[in-house]
Design a protein around this nucleic acid. Structure first.
Lengths: 386, 386
DNA sequence: ATCAATTATTCTCATAACAAGAAAAATATC
DNA sequence: GATATTTTTCTTGTTATGAGAATAATTGAT
């Protein structure tokens, strides 16, 4: 472990402290992080010279003594771009270094690998132009629906049909900025940690549902990736012995009970009328369609069972549910709570809060922004979050 | 993060490198750890002056050049003692700093809290006398069947009936050496990492069975304790919906299917003849008692299901099964493998090795030694492993 | 036996970081 | 305006790492 590591670690801690708590004073940073005042002062000076943070006069406090300087991330100091590639759309967000979105848009996508790098390069250029800032683009984070190796190769993205694509190299060639690629579930968890409901919470379990079910284990302030990067694929927790078949080949996984295709399939089986989208499912539920409400309730029960296992394993302070689940909260929550009551270790579950996060629906594509921000400011600047 | 932290971190890495691979050269330490040669040299000199490591001439290699110095942990440099408190026995081991046991013994114990500190103090004194070394006792690690807070308070040990006992303070008063206390499952996992089948493996899941089922999550080179220290209580994973009742109050936990009391209970229910001990269960199985073999096979199936969930969550390279399970390997393994075949995500389970470890039966009480060694050489010297 | 080649370890010196305390800056109250 | 108070910066000292030169200890060739 080198010594510049310490500087980097401390600088990173201070940066995010300012991001999370705008207008903190150096004094408070010292109090919260335990870093020595000299070091904080020195790092803030460095940041200040780089134009990264600004010192703002703060309204008088009616206390004697030199007034504190409020520190904020300078909005003009740089841009980061988040890109989210899905089966049929590509989403873009441009944001300042504090992570606050400036502009966003989505474009239709045919899923073809051919020419996607240039397509994304064009999209990034446009979203940057749209945001109205002229600062440098310091990083582009790309959230992908599949697992990646440490070297930035997308191993397999089932919904896109891509296999063994060296995404970091590919996009690096087409885009004139550092590329940070990552799995969509892990990127979304990082976004929750940086901008969402899990802000500054060092241990939580993240689950999200959409065309599939993904997730991440956020442990000790970091995504746990495991020895080979596949840890946290929570869509494949076993929930029903000899249950439904999953696209992964096994049976009884959580994914086919909770994903949009899984729900649609089940509703189709029961009514002969297959919903066209998750929005369609929600509309039927809102119209009091008993079958749909029943299917969602069952999904909630299965979800609650999975959460119970996770609670018993990790004893986390927080379980965060995102994606489609957040919209379906009214239909899922009662069943989730019933299941947890029955299944989770009582002395553990009392310590666990289960929340549904709207982040990914309210401001989508933030996963890529989180990847880029983590990459730009991060410790070892990994360009990949497998 | 301070700078002395780096020194400590590097020193620790070098110490354990020497412990794990006796007679390494400085050159190889550099190659394996990435620490700079100057730093390795400086730290080795420090260790050498403290009498902590020895430089041994190594048999000539027929290669040109200055021959390497073999480095070993000096056996005379200090003693550590491991203590394991169970329901009816207290076990002691004295070991050198390399972790190699010098003497061990067990004594009967009535489980009474009153006077236990003096009892243990006496036991430690005797085991140290017995080992024949006069070096200082640098630390005593105490493995306890319950969960501890960061401050060294044993919250609850069901088998002992203890609650809210400030064990670190209590034993520190009675014993003239630094005390490191910890949960038995986590201590056993640490022992596997330091001395056993999981040596030097940075990510593994540990499960052990005995009077209960415990475990630990060993992630990124450390026991994951979670936000409130209860993480890794794998005995309470849900395996059977609406299954047997567990001492924890919930139903369907792994513990009642795999622990000695759980197995005995089931065998009693089926035969009316309750085994008196795990050894008794094994003897009946070895004598081809079909009921007992069937009960063990069922336990294996349940265990396999739990392991499958863990594999799908962590994608670990290794799952290590210790305690009574190791002795029952022939009766458990087939069912475990069958269950995993059926339940675990194939692309994950191919990466996972499941092993049964004899460590805790062959040389018991090493958990305490691991606690003490970790405490003595550890980074932040936590006196507790909750 | 001596010298060159080779390999392992130590030493030297430059650079970087933290850490404690003094000093300075900026304000409120008396 | 003096004093107390609070926040930030500067000074100085200590301790690390890290690159490269130097040293030490051996083998094999001359």
């Amino acid at each position: 472990m080198g010594k510049s590591y310490i500087r980097h670690f401390n600088a990173n801690a201070i940066f995010h402290r300012i991001r999370i708590e705008p207008n903190v004073s150096q004094r408070d940073i010292v109090a919260r992080t335990g870093i020595d005042k000299s070091v904080v002062s020195s790092i803030i000076n460095q940041f200040s010279e780089l134009g990264l943070v600004e010192r703002n006069p703060v309204a008088t406090s009616n206390k004697p003594g030199r007034p504190m300087e409020g520190l904020t991330i300078s909005p003009e100091s740089g841009l980061i771009v988040g890109v989210q590639i899905e089966a049929d759309t590509i989403g873009y967000v441009a944001a300042a270094l504090d992570g606050i979105p400036l502009s966003s848009r989505a474009q239709a996508f045919d899923g073809k690998l051919d020419g996607v790098a240039d397509l994304v390069a064009q999209g990034v250029k446009e979203i940057v132009a749209e945001c109205g800032r002229t600062s440098d683009t310091l990083g582009v984070g790309i959230s992908l629906p599949g697992l990646l190796t440490d070297e930035g190769v997308l191993l397999h993205a089932p919904v896109l049909g891509w296999r063994g694509v060296p995404v970091v190299d590919m996009f690096s060639e087409a885009l004139d900025a550092p590329i940070f690629a990552g799995n969509d579930g892990k990127a979304a968890a990082m976004a929750e940690y940086m901008f969402g409901e899990c802000i500054d919470i060092k241990d939580f379990i993240y689950l999200f549902s959409g065309s599939g079910v993904g997730g991440a284990l956020f442990l000790d302030g970091n995504i746990y990736r495991g020895a080979s990067g596949l840890a946290g694929e929570l869509g494949h927790i076993k929930v029903v012995p000899q249950g439904r078949y999953c696209s992964c080949g096994a049976s009884g996984c959580l994914s086919p009970y909770l994903s949009e295709p899984g729900l649609a399939e089940e509703i189709d089986r029961l009514t002969g009328n297959r919903p066209s989208s998750f929005k369609d499912i929600m509309e039927r539920a809102d119209a009091n369609d008993e079958v749909v409400v029943g299917v969602l309730d069952n999904a909630g029960a299965v979800l609650g069972s999975a959460i119970s296992s996770l609670v018993n394993i990790f004893n986390p302070p927080l379980v965060c549910l995102g994606g489609d689940m957040a919209s379906a909260e009214p239909y899922l929550r009662p069943a989730v709570e019933r299941a947890m009551q029955r299944l989770a270790h009582p002395s553990m579950s009392v310590q666990t809060k289960v929340i549904f996060s709207q982040l990914s629906t309210v401001s989508p594509f933030l996963g890529g922004v989180a990847l880029a921000l983590d990459g730009v400011t991060g410790l070892d600047s990994p360009h990949v979050l497998p």
